[in-house]
């Protein structure tokens, strides 16, 4: 039987800082973030280089104009995006590709829910602000590619240059990141007994299917 108390240390993510990279456009879907043909892999390890592949390369693998191809953004770790970012397919390959490219946090007008959930499971904050604020941050990042942004997850603030603006972090996300409880596997595994009780109360779950559920 698997270990009851798997000792994994879940780091708290109170804040993230680093330089930014602006990715403009609404409704950027996960097919753009990682085209399906790069999903034919059984691990996420090599996905970074394929992030936004079709936006970055032509058919003949020549570079297209895209922020992720620009030298000045190569060390960026905070992506600043617009609305409904990450919509479409639920593929976790999308945040995995961004993470492996070097992204530790995203700031945007809004995020598709599954995408934000997938990010949270990797400890990546997805914080939001109104369109105007985002446009200002994107402009600032464009002018200061080496400048640091700081996302204070707990205080719901982003600081860049001399400016500090209020942002929104979804309550559950904030709690999970700040208290270091975003690794839900460990958290939920400790409730195995209650899980079995809930299952036993459901008419459609056949009882022999719960009795030997692994702890």
């Amino acid at each position: 039987m698997a270990g009851e108390d798997d000792e994994i240390d879940i780091p708290a993510v109170d804040s993230v800082s680093g330089s930014g990279i602006p990715i403009q456009g609404n409704d950027i879907d996960t097919d753009q973030i990682i085209p399906a043909r790069f999903m034919k892999v059984v691990t996420f390890d090599g996905l970074g280089e394929f992030a936004f592949f079709d936006q970055r390369f032509t058919e003949d693998d020549d570079l297209k104009a895209h922020p992720m191809n620009e030298d000045r953004f190569q060390d960026s770790s905070i992506m600043v995006v617009n609305s409904n970012f990450g919509c479409g397919s639920s593929r976790e390959h999308a945040p995995q590709a961004l993470l492996r490219w070097g992204i530790d946090a995203l700031i945007g007008e809004s995020f598709a829910e599954i995408f934000a959930g997938n990010c949270l499971a990797l400890g990546i904050p997805t914080v939001t602000a109104d369109a105007e604020t985002i446009a200002e941050i994107q402009d600032w990042v464009d002018e200061h590619p080496d400048g640091d942004l700081e996302i204070d997850v707990a205080a719901e603030q982003v600081t860049y240059g001399e400016t500090t603006v209020a942002v929104t972090v979804d309550d559950a996300q904030r709690k999970a990141l700040v208290e270091g409880v975003w690794d839900t596997t460990a958290l939920m595994k400790s409730n195995a007994g209650e899980v079995r009780e809930t299952a036993a109360d459901l008419p459609y779950v056949e009882s022999d299917r719960i009795s030997d559920a692994a702890d």
């Binding site: 996420f44 639920s90 593929r91 976790e92 390959h93 945040p95 995995q96 599954i114 959930g117 997938n118 499971a121 990797l122 839900t184 596997t185 958290l187 939920m188 595994k189 409730n191 195995a192 899980v195 299952a199 559920a213």
Partner: peptide, 17 residues
């Protein structure tokens, strides 16, 4: 629909957050 980390949760615990 759920992401891969949640699939891990469901496989390991039979539950999802």
């Amino acid at each position: 629909g759920i992401g891969t980390s949640q699939i891990r949760d469901v496989l390991a615990t039979g539950t999802v957050a």
